[in-house]
Amino acid sequence: MTLYVRDIRPSDRTRLTRLWESCALDPAAPRTAEHLDRALMDRSRTLLVGHVGTQLVASVMTGLAGDHGWVRCLAVAPAHRLHGHGREMMEEAGLWLAARGARTIDLIVEEGADIAEAFCQQIGFARQDAHRYSKGLLQEIPAS
């Protein structure tokens, strides 16, 4: 099963939503349009998708902040796991970032996500002792 990786296209929207739903990337599905639009318009980020044949089976969102790269939304369809697709997607994200001057890649693994932590360590990431804080700056305006 060869994985073909490319930048996302607008026509991938529905298949990407299905992939993220199958991987329980909550609340990914409602935000798929936002992520896709940003990846298509912002040159400092991309959303890579992986195909086996005509089937979209993997994704990873990546971007650049100064000389640091970041990764979010790594997803591999449950039926296509344990074939090296997650590793391939992370390698492609790393190549995309390195070509744009990134010196490191940062990612966040939610506390208690033991499988994700093991995967990150297996592909060469080292755990950093840090606490992450965030604050929303844009408030959603309710639809009228």
Rank of each mutant, 00 (worst) to 15 (best):
R18E: 15
L56I: 03
F125N: 07
A29S: 11
G69Q: 12
I108N: 09
D7C: 09
S44N: 15
C23N: 00
R15H: 13
P27T: 07
M41P: 00
G53N: 04
D67L: 08
I141R: 14
V57T: 11
T32W: 03
L97W: 08
G53A: 04
G136I: 05
L47H: 08
I123G: 07
T54C: 01
H131E: 13
V52H: 10
D114H: 07
M90S: 07
I141W: 06
P10D: 09
K135S: 05
Q121T: 07
W20D: 02
R18M: 04
R103I: 09
Q121I: 03
L82H: 13
H80I: 00
E117R: 12
A58S: 11
A75L: 11
M90D: 02
T17V: 08
E92V: 12
L16S: 02
A113M: 10
S59G: 03
D114Q: 04
R43N: 12
D12T: 05
A29M: 01
Q121K: 11
T46M: 03
Y4R: 06
T46D: 07
V5D: 01
A98N: 08
C120P: 09
G69V: 12
G69T: 11
I8A: 14
G124Q: 06
V76C: 08
V57N: 02
H51F: 12
E117W: 00
R15F: 05
E21H: 03
H35C: 10
P142M: 11
G101V: 14
L138F: 14
C120N: 03
A39G: 03
P142Y: 08
R13M: 09
L137C: 11
L3F: 01
G63V: 09
A58I: 07
S11V: 13
I108C: 04
G86P: 01
A29E: 03
V71T: 12
G53F: 03
S134K: 08
A39P: 05
L56G: 04
V71F: 07
Q121E: 13
V76S: 06
R38Q: 10
R45S: 14
